[in-house]
Simulated scan of single mutants.
Amino acid sequence: MSDVAAAIMDAAERRMRRGGFNGFSFREIAADVGVKSSSVHYHFPTKEDLAAAVIKRYTAETAELIERELGKESNPIKVWVKAFRGTLHSQDRMCPCAVLGASSQDLPPEVAAEVKRFFKMCHDKLVEEGLPPDEASQLLSTITGALVVANAVNDFSVYDNATREFTKSKKPAPMKAAARRLK
């Protein structure tokens, strides 16, 4: 991927974190990056192509981050809570998939498919780490919901309070974590 394409994706991701799919235009992205709108179209022919590429990259980056953190921490619940807490404390404060997921019924099919793939990846990784499917769904719902509410009320403690209680009531999945360390 070229530096320009990566910069375009970065700008689009920042704008999607704040305003969703309708929160950006190619003209705005071009201005953010310092290129002509035609350059954005060259790399990503349509807005749908750009948004889908951003979410696909975000999914891969999140999967890599989780794998790296699971190498350091054996409790997958703590890893996921910490990862989404990091998002809350980042400059843009929202997971682009949480923003887009809220309006997934109105997204173009290729973008909705990538958002669905992100959440499926999250759920599947939690199950692989030993959480029962229902608990994986509950954790994913808790951390994404707490992220949204904390942003809506502009109070980070909402996230910490919601996830603290969740992690207190859940036990780590030591068998999967131990197997990971043996690899």
Score class of each variant (00 low, 15 high):
13 E>L: 06
151 N>E: 10
104 S>E: 07
93 R>G: 07
40 V>C: 01
46 T>A: 02
159 Y>H: 09
123 H>M: 05
169 S>E: 10
46 T>R: 00
89 H>R: 14
49 D>Y: 01
165 E>R: 08
72 K>A: 07
119 F>M: 09
127 V>K: 03
103 S>E: 11
109 P>N: 14
118 F>C: 02
104 S>L: 08
102 A>R: 11
2 S>W: 00
11 A>R: 01
49 D>W: 02
84 F>V: 14
148 V>C: 13
18 R>G: 04
139 L>H: 04
10 D>N: 06
50 L>I: 11
169 S>N: 12
26 F>W: 06
88 L>I: 03
9 M>L: 04
163 T>Q: 10
180 R>W: 03
163 T>G: 08
30 A>M: 12
155 D>F: 11
14 R>E: 05
8 I>L: 00
66 I>F: 04
143 I>A: 01
76 P>H: 02
157 S>P: 06
178 A>G: 09
171 K>S: 09
120 K>M: 03
39 S>L: 02
74 S>E: 03
1 M>P: 03
28 E>D: 08
6 A>C: 02
22 N>E: 13
108 P>T: 03
11 A>H: 05
20 G>E: 02
16 M>P: 10
7 A>Y: 00
55 I>V: 14
158 V>R: 13
154 N>C: 08
176 K>I: 08
163 T>V: 10
154 N>T: 08
34 G>R: 04
5 A>M: 02
163 T>F: 10
179 A>H: 09
139 L>R: 06
151 N>A: 04
92 D>M: 11
56 K>L: 06
24 F>G: 03
36 K>P: 05
54 V>A: 01
112 A>M: 09
2 S>M: 04
116 K>I: 02
6 A>L: 00
176 K>Y: 08
172 P>R: 14
112 A>T: 03
6 A>Y: 00
175 M>G: 12
75 N>Y: 04
37 S>F: 12
145 G>V: 05
81 V>T: 04
83 A>I: 13
91 Q>R: 15
2 S>H: 05
